Amino acid sequence: MPKAKKLIEVALPLEAINAACAREKSIRHGHPSTLHLWWARRPLAAARVVIFASLVDDPDDLNANPEFVAACKNLDLTSLGCARHNSTIEDTPRMRLFDFIEKLVTWEATTDDRIISKARELIRIATNNNPPPLLDPFAGGGSIPLEAQRLGLKAYASDLNPVAVMINKAMIEIPPRFKDCPPINPDDRGRDSVSSWHGAQGLAADVRYYGQWMRERAQERIGHLYPTYNGETVIAWLWARTVKSPNPAVDAHVPLMRSFVLSKKKGHEYWAKPIVDGERVRFEVVKG
Rank of each mutant, 00 (worst) to 15 (best):
E9N: 07
E9R: 07
L12T: 00
S26P: 02
S26Q: 09
H31A: 12
W38E: 02
W39G: 11
A53M: 01
S54P: 04
P59V: 02
D60R: 02
D61M: 09
N63W: 11
P66A: 12
F68Y: 14
D76C: 11
T78S: 14
L80M: 15
L80A: 08
C82P: 03
H85F: 13
N86V: 03
S87K: 02
R94N: 02
R96V: 01
L97K: 01
F98C: 00
F100Q: 00
I101E: 00
T106G: 07
W107K: 15
W107A: 15
E108F: 05
T110N: 14
T111D: 12
D113S: 14
I116S: 13
S117D: 11
K118D: 11
I123H: 00
I125W: 07
P131V: 14
P131S: 11
P132W: 03
P133W: 05
L134S: 06
L134I: 11
P137A: 07
F138C: 12
G141K: 00
G142V: 03
S143V: 03
I144D: 00
P145I: 02
L146I: 15
L153T: 05
K154Q: 10
Y156A: 04
D159H: 03
A164F: 01
V165L: 09
K169C: 04
K169H: 05
A170C: 10
A170P: 01
E173P: 00
F178A: 07
F178Y: 15
D180L: 04
I184K: 13
S196L: 08
A200N: 15
L203A: 04
Q212M: 14
Q212H: 08
M214C: 08
R217I: 06
A218W: 10
Q219C: 05
Q219P: 06
T228R: 13
Y229I: 15
W237M: 09
L238T: 11
N247P: 05
N247D: 15
A249E: 08
A252P: 04
A252F: 04
L256R: 13
K264W: 08
K265Q: 14
H268Q: 13
Y270W: 06
W271N: 10
K273T: 07
I275P: 02
V276T: 10
V281Q: 07
